[in-house]
Structure formats: C-alpha cells, structure tokens
Amino acid sequence: MSAAAVRIVLLYPSLLGAHGDQGNALVLTRRLQLRGIEAELVRIAPGDPVPTDGSVYLLGGGEDAAQTTAVHELKADGGLFTALDNGAVLFAVCAGYQICGRSFTNGTHDRGVDGLGLLDITTRRGPERAVGESLSHWRMPDGSVSLVTGFENHSGWSELGTDATPLASMEIGWGNGDGQTDGAVQGRVIGIYPHGPILARNPDLADHLLSVALGQHLESIELPDVEALRSRRIDAVRADRS
C-alpha cells in the first residue's frame, strides 16, 4: 500500500467491536475503493501504537470493562489525540460514543469514570435498557434531511453540554435517552448510539465522514441492495411502532 493511501483506522476491535461495528471500517474503506481512491483499513489492538496519519478513526460498542480499558489505553498512547489535532475525523458508536465524553458510569456502579473528553457529554445509567430498531433525522450540511436507521442496544443516557450539538433528532427509539435526540457532534468528532452497523445502513453518513476527512466532495455511488435494505428497515420500524 503506498503512502498516499487513505487510512481508515479501526481502534481496538477486540475490545470495542462486538456488535458488528467493525463493519463501519469496512464500509468506509470500500466506499473509497469503489470510487477509485486508494484506501487501507488498519486494525489497532490494545498495546499497538495508534498511528497519527489516519483520515478516519473508529470506535465501536462493547462491554463495561472494555470501555475502561480502552480509555486507559488511548490516553496512555496519545496517538488518537495527535491525529485529531492534525485534522482527522473520529466516528464513535454506542460504548465508543460514551467514552468520548467527559464521564460515563459503568454497569451498576453510579460513580462516573473519566472519558476521553472529546465530546461535551456526560453519560449515566438510564432507568431502562434501550434495545430495538431506531430511526432518526439527520440534517446534512446541504440542509436536506437524511433518515438514519439502526439498531440500538445500550443502558446509558447521555446529556449534552453546550460545546456539543445533537447529531440527529429521534423519530423512533431512545437515542441519547430522552427519545428526542441521538448522538453528538463537536468539531470533527461524531458519536451516535445505533449499531447495524450504522454506516452500512446509512451511506449518506458514511460519505459525510469521508468528505470531511478528505476535504473534498465525493460523487454518489449506486448500491441497490443498500437502498432496498434502508427502505425495508425504515418501513419495518415505522410499522412496528405505529
């Protein structure tokens, strides 16, 4: 792989990636390759140095104990923070989203654990577990709305501070916990709850991450199965909750 290849960096898939979230890295890499852009998927295990020259970094969902370990390892390594200072994009899902915040609670313990401090959110254990298909509305940079379909499975409720902006407004599901919004954006750090993996179901969001990271507009690509799956899941979740 030449030095010019765009690097998609999957962080600690063995710790945070037990819900198919590694699929997000595959989707980003393939969507670049389908456009003829050279791209490379880099998997980083705990203890490996985190490269600082990646374009998009990904964190996925996982267990409580894995969250604490991931925060410890990422802070000790420091490479992710350097990469973000260099202009990289970080996209984090579920447990990965929570650890980007100021603090989060673990399991049945109510004491907050310090997060990475990349998003102005605080996560506490909610009164019920949020499990099921979700649907939200994301306003894209051009002002149009893209529906975001996914499957959420978490017990954390995240409260946004003033530095973070909600990513999407909920139509169906819990999202950040109140059923009003899902996810958060702060600079080039984006987090959201659903798995799916979410970028496989939501190509607009995938291409948004890539175009921010690359600083260029990307032409659309046609994947009929993806469009068919999207409309099927959107119809199903609306029928189920109506």
Binding site: G20, D21, Q22, G132, F151, H195, P197
Partner: peptide, 9 residues
C-alpha cells in the same frame, strides 16, 4: 436474535 449486526463479525 433480533439484531443482525453480528453478520459483520
């Protein structure tokens, strides 16, 4: 199992 995200694992 209602969540198929495991297909990606």
């Amino acid at each position: 199992g209602r969540d198929l995200s495991w297909l990606w694992d």
